[in-house]
Computed example of a mutant assay.
Amino acid sequence: MRIARFSIDGNVAFGAVEGEGTVDSGDLVLDIIKGIPYADFELSGVKVPLNKVRLLPPVLPSKIVAVGRNYAEHAAELGHSVVDEAGRPEAPLTFFKPSTSVIGPGDAIAYPAFSSDLHHEAELAVVIGRMCREVPPERVKDVIFGYTAANDVTARDVQQREKQWARAKGFDTSCPLGPWVETELDPADLTLQCTVNGEQRQLGRTSDMIRPVADLIAHISEAMTLLPGDVILTGTPAGVGPLNVGDEVAVTIEGIGTLTNKVIKRG
């Protein structure tokens, strides 16, 4: 099931997406959900055309936990290794993006004034569905609500010159999510693509992850409690590159859909 969060006439609601097509095709409708989707819910039967509402970020996470260097080719293109001197895999590299970085489909990415080298990073995002801690890998599927597309927008020059990544990856509008959450999906081997102005920049498969989703959530939940709506970003494949003011960047993930955002000058 595809679950979208949207606003209409000043009200915010969740709805189940019905039909086949893209966000702008006019072929999709929303069946409004009674309550919130993390617990048992009912469909109201009240339906609205998706192109008549404003899609919002599909979740409002208390935190976004991101994983770096989870695709070997991407680590290599930035000059990093994913193994230690003994040839053993490094521990997952994790960092936070704040909730204030989240925007939804169609929202603008505001180019930060403190950077001159903004990059796209297309990623599969995992949405947590229940409060959990110390989840073993074999139980991870029980705590997942679903999956959505993400763009870990990065001020690459700031990332390279500052020891911590808080400003480089946590500025306002640096975490587009959407267009909805797909609750019935196997994340093991999905095509992941990023285009800029229609030109392909990134193309990879989730099967190329160094650590799969179950291992990542087990690792992260060893350290912290995850709450419903929290988001785990699982890393980006090779091909990251620059974004400029006026660009349209789109992240497409097999089985989910396409997340599209334009880059504007920060006012």
Results as ranks from 00 to 15, higher is better:
residue 2 R to H: 13
residue 3 I to D: 07
residue 3 I to L: 07
residue 4 A to P: 08
residue 8 I to V: 15
residue 8 I to K: 14
residue 13 A to E: 03
residue 13 A to W: 01
residue 21 G to W: 01
residue 21 G to D: 06
residue 25 S to G: 14
residue 27 D to Y: 04
residue 27 D to H: 03
residue 29 V to I: 15
residue 30 L to H: 09
residue 31 D to M: 04
residue 32 I to W: 02
residue 32 I to Y: 01
residue 33 I to L: 07
residue 33 I to R: 02
residue 35 G to S: 12
residue 37 P to K: 11
residue 38 Y to G: 11
residue 38 Y to V: 15
residue 39 A to I: 02
residue 39 A to E: 15
residue 40 D to K: 11
residue 42 E to C: 10
residue 43 L to R: 05
residue 46 V to C: 00
residue 48 V to G: 04
residue 48 V to S: 02
residue 56 L to H: 11
residue 58 P to I: 01
residue 60 L to Q: 00
residue 61 P to T: 13
residue 65 V to A: 00
residue 66 A to V: 15
residue 66 A to R: 11
residue 67 V to G: 00
residue 69 R to H: 08
residue 70 N to K: 06
residue 72 A to F: 05
residue 75 A to R: 08
residue 87 G to M: 08
residue 89 P to K: 02
residue 89 P to G: 04
residue 91 A to H: 15
residue 96 F to C: 06
residue 96 F to R: 00
residue 98 P to M: 05
residue 99 S to R: 07
residue 100 T to R: 04
residue 102 V to L: 08
residue 103 I to Y: 10
residue 103 I to E: 05
residue 104 G to F: 08
residue 105 P to I: 06
residue 105 P to A: 10
residue 106 G to F: 06
residue 106 G to N: 05
residue 111 Y to E: 13
residue 113 A to W: 04
residue 115 S to V: 02
residue 117 D to T: 09
residue 119 H to V: 07
residue 121 E to K: 02
residue 129 G to W: 06
residue 130 R to A: 14
residue 131 M to Q: 14
residue 132 C to E: 08
residue 133 R to K: 12
residue 137 P to D: 08
residue 137 P to Q: 09
residue 139 R to M: 12
residue 144 I to F: 03
residue 145 F to D: 01
residue 147 Y to D: 08
residue 148 T to G: 05
residue 148 T to C: 11
residue 150 A to T: 04
residue 151 N to T: 12
residue 152 D to E: 15
residue 153 V to E: 04
residue 156 R to P: 06
residue 159 Q to L: 10
residue 162 E to C: 11
residue 163 K to V: 13
residue 168 A to L: 04
residue 171 F to D: 13
residue 171 F to H: 14
residue 171 F to G: 12
residue 174 S to P: 13
residue 178 G to Y: 08
residue 178 G to D: 09
residue 182 E to W: 09
residue 183 T to V: 11
residue 183 T to R: 09
residue 183 T to K: 03
residue 185 L to N: 03
residue 187 P to G: 10
residue 188 A to Q: 09
residue 188 A to H: 11
residue 193 Q to T: 15
residue 194 C to G: 07
residue 194 C to R: 03
residue 194 C to F: 08
residue 195 T to H: 01
residue 195 T to M: 00
residue 195 T to S: 04
residue 197 N to T: 00
residue 198 G to I: 12
residue 201 R to M: 15
residue 201 R to N: 11
residue 203 L to D: 13
residue 203 L to K: 01
residue 205 R to I: 03
residue 205 R to C: 02
residue 206 T to L: 02
residue 207 S to L: 01
residue 208 D to V: 01
residue 209 M to H: 14
residue 210 I to M: 14
residue 210 I to V: 11
residue 212 P to N: 15
residue 212 P to V: 09
residue 214 A to K: 06
residue 215 D to C: 06
residue 217 I to G: 10
residue 218 A to L: 15
residue 222 E to N: 14
residue 224 M to F: 14
residue 225 T to W: 03
residue 225 T to N: 01
residue 229 G to E: 00
residue 231 V to K: 03
residue 233 L to D: 07
residue 236 T to K: 03
residue 239 G to K: 02
residue 240 V to G: 09
residue 243 L to G: 03
residue 249 V to S: 01
residue 251 V to S: 05
residue 251 V to H: 05
residue 253 I to M: 08
residue 253 I to Y: 12
residue 255 G to V: 10
residue 258 T to C: 10
residue 267 G to D: 14
residue 267 G to Y: 12
